[in-house]
Design a protein around this nucleic acid. Structure first.
Lengths: 254, 254
DNA sequence: TAGTGGTCTAGACCACGTT
DNA sequence: ACGTGGTCTAGACCACTAG
């Protein structure tokens, strides 16, 4: 295929004329296939040469598209084996989105969660805004307690759009082993690929203090998260309260 | 230059025989030049073709080396202009390593800092370990109060190796406009390129509460940071206490 | 041995910024 | 018009994994 500006080929803009390189267009097509479920989490995608033939471009162009998707953790490259769709199942012990780490690395964090509640709610204005749905739309609400190293350490409140997570009940949650995001992939076809968090220090209220075995007013980390699937669609709101006297939230700055 | 395994070319291992691609070797040479100060923060480095000639490799190989350095924020590419050494000066308003953001984005955070203390200390065992120096080595200790939006919001304590930051006094700090890391680049030739943070929720003690205009016991974010220069050498320890009732620490997960 | 991703090259042309 | 980074191609060969 020849290379030219946006008026040519896939993804040409209608009138804006924003230049979009070929590999970006290929990348968008790959994401589209991922979103459509053509290749599922954990599976391998076709080889670079196969994709090059399919899209009628050179291997190098496919390569660059895959490179970016691998950098964004949508795909995982394995030399000699192939390129695989990222999954929250493999990360198993090391929860991909949980940045809580023991101060003392010897304490292997055996995570274990207890469902405290699983009910239906209607979306408040705030949650509707974040999930890009309408106020009053049906939500599934989950409240759970997580133990790290046999000690209650995290309380999570989770809000999900009910239409997408139809059939998500307390029973399903209790039977689930491993990360919640793994369940979302397997049972509901929702892959979480990115999240934004806002972190604050707050004081534990009476109820929370009771669950976490601390006194009322004890300082906790409040982590407000919005998780996104393919195409930057928000799919989950989560508020986590972390006990950070023996754990900390780790972060890298570049 | 031909392409072969580690026994060939620059960077060949002595006996371990770990394979190192050419572009990784070029990358290491570039970092070496950056560290040596051949190109200073804000300046441009030679063009890709010049570097290709200098290292006797193809432009594509130099390109891949620069790509990775740009991804790590050591270099900044600007189409049509050149490739520049990253600096903490340009980031000016948007402090590169400060993740504190107003809950209400309208509140433009006018940062302004007051030096509370600048003295000499000897390294404790803990700080010596983190800075990879010896216990008892000379340190410069800085304590400062930062105002965001005309409200005291952050208290920082900073520990620096005295031999590297010779001549860093209270006067120098007070006269400095802009980010501290900009001062480090200009006056001491130290470029901070990466940092690791550990975040916890703690209760304000009496002294801190007084500085931040809150009551004792008020929940604060405690951010412990280690900053690194070229070659992963730790060069700064920092403990920040953040008031997060109107601000939050933002983070992206991938 | 075959297939996959990973590296390297050489050359052509495009987009952007400056002169 | 020129120089810079950005995109694309085609082809060769290397490294890793599996059958």
């Amino acid at each position: 295929m020849s290379f030219s500006s946006s008026s040519t080929g896939r993804g040409g803009a209608i009138g804006g004329a924003a230049f979009s390189p070929l590999y970006k267009q290929i990348k968008a097509l790959l994401v589209q296939s991922l979103h459509a479920g053509e290749w599922k989490p954990g599976e391998s995608i076709p080889s670079e040469l196969d994709l090059a033939a399919r899209f009628q471009v050179s291997q190098g162009t496919v390569r660059k598209a895959i490179d970016e998707l691998a950098a964004e953790n949508l795909l995982i490259r394995r030399q000699g084996k192939g390129t695989f769709v990222a999954t929250h199942h493999e990360a198993q012990v090391r929860y991909r989105f949980l940045r809580l780490t023991p101060d003392n690395p010897e304490n292997t964090q055996r995570a274990q969660s207890t469902i405290l509640e699983c009910s239906r709610q209607k979306a408040t204005q705030e949650i509707a805004r974040l999930l890009e749905i309408r106020t009053g739309d049906a939500l599934i609400y989950i409240k759970r307690l997580m133990n790290l190293g046999n000690r209650p350490s995290v309380i999570d409140e989770i809000w999900l759009p009910a239409d997408v997570f139809k059939g998500l009940t307390s029973e399903v949650l209790i039977h689930n082993k491993g990360p919640l995001y793994g369940l979302f992939e397997t049972k509901f076809g929702v892959s979480m690929i990115r999240a934004e968090e806002k972190i604050r220090a707050i004081a534990a209220n009476a109820q929370v203090a009771d669950f976490l075995n601390v006194s009322e007013g004890f300082p906790l980390l409040q982590v407000d998260r919005v998780s996104y699937t393919y195409g930057d669609r928000p799919m989950e709101i989560r508020r986590g309260l972390y006990l950070t006297d023996q754990y900390h939230y780790r972060n890298s700055l570049n």
